[in-house]
């Protein structure tokens, strides 16, 4: 009698767990499977590779920022990935920001300051669409987070960005590609408005780091993951401290509970 109820209960709990796992696992759509990559920032002790982030920023600045805004980023955020205060000031000052109105009531341009947001390539969404055949290049501040799938310790946003950037190719035979669209293996529907932005050697790095397509794609994917969550490293560090404290706390109270309950057991 007891054995059967254990079996029944166990079976039910097991199937409930299986059901929960189904919820957790995202099914592939149309058979598109985003390949999982290795990143320095995944896992319980993940950290960003600052050299990689700097390369990723360079790619963003040189290539992506022509069409993609990153409106939630400030130039001062770049100090976090290893740029010195002067370098940050120079990067900011290299763009002209519209400010104003001045005392005459006019808007005017001035060099950027660290406290400015990243300069957007277009004044508004409509201008962005007009310049891109009606397609809106999405803002990149949270791009990695919004494409993250069910980011369970893995960071599928970075996987997704890397996949898209490396997924361009010729359309297979019989695939109807609409005008102005490009075939991409990993994009939903396989047709993407953005033409291939990165190629081997598209960007040259001062320190001579690898600049083949795969490396470039990884660097910018890592940069965008950081841009989406600059506090990731703080989160991991605080998490470690919290978990260590909680383990000690729980053990202490378990011992106390056993001691107190021993009085009546």
């Amino acid at each position: 009698m007891k054995k059967r109820s254990i079996l029944l209960n166990g079976l039910t709990i097991l199937s409930a767990l299986v059901a929960v796992l189904f919820i957790a696992a995202s099914p592939d759509e149309e058979g598109i499977h985003i390949p999982r990559e290795q990143w320095s920032f995944t896992g319980f002790f993940g950290k960003f590779d600052h050299a990689q982030l700097k390369r990723g920023f360079q790619i963003y600045k040189d290539v992506c920022s022509a069409c993609h805004s990153a409106n939630l980023m400030y130039y001062r955020n770049l100090a976090q990935i290893g740029f010195s205060d002067d370098e940050v000031k120079d990067i900011a000052a290299s763009v002209q920001i519209t400010d104003g109105p001045n005392d005459a009531g006019d808007m005017f341009d001035r060099p950027g300051k660290p406290s400015d947001h990243f300069k957007a390539p277009f004044a508004n969404d409509q201008a962005a669409r007009a310049a891109n055949n009606g397609a809106l290049p999405p803002d990149m501040s949270l791009l990695a987070r919004s494409r993250a799938g069910k980011g369970f310790l893995g960071y599928e946003g970075a996987d997704y960005i890397h996949a898209i950037l490396t997924g361009y190719g010729d359309a297979p035979a019989g695939f109807k590609l609409q005008d102005g669209m490009n075939y991409n293996k990993f994009f939903r529907g396989h047709q993407i408005a953005m033409p291939q932005p990165l190629t081997d050697g598209a960007v040259t790095f001062a320190d001579g780091a690898k600049n083949d397509l795969d490396s470039e794609a990884r660097d910018v994917a890592a940069f965008l993951t950081w841009a989406g969550e600059p506090n990731l490293e703080a989160r991991h560090l605080t998490g470690l401290k919290a978990v260590l404290f909680l383990v000690a706390f729980t053990l202490l109270f378990y011992a106390a509970k056993r001691k107190i309950w021993a009085r009546i057991h």
Binding site: F245, A248, F249, L252, F253, A255, A256, K259
Partner: peptide, 19 residues
């Protein structure tokens, strides 16, 4: 021993709350 355990537990709780 028991009091020490309770003291430790209470201190842990207080420390946690303050943190």
């Amino acid at each position: 021993r028991r009091d020490f355990l309770y003291l430790m537990s209470a201190s842990a709780a207080a420390f946690g709350a303050a943190t």
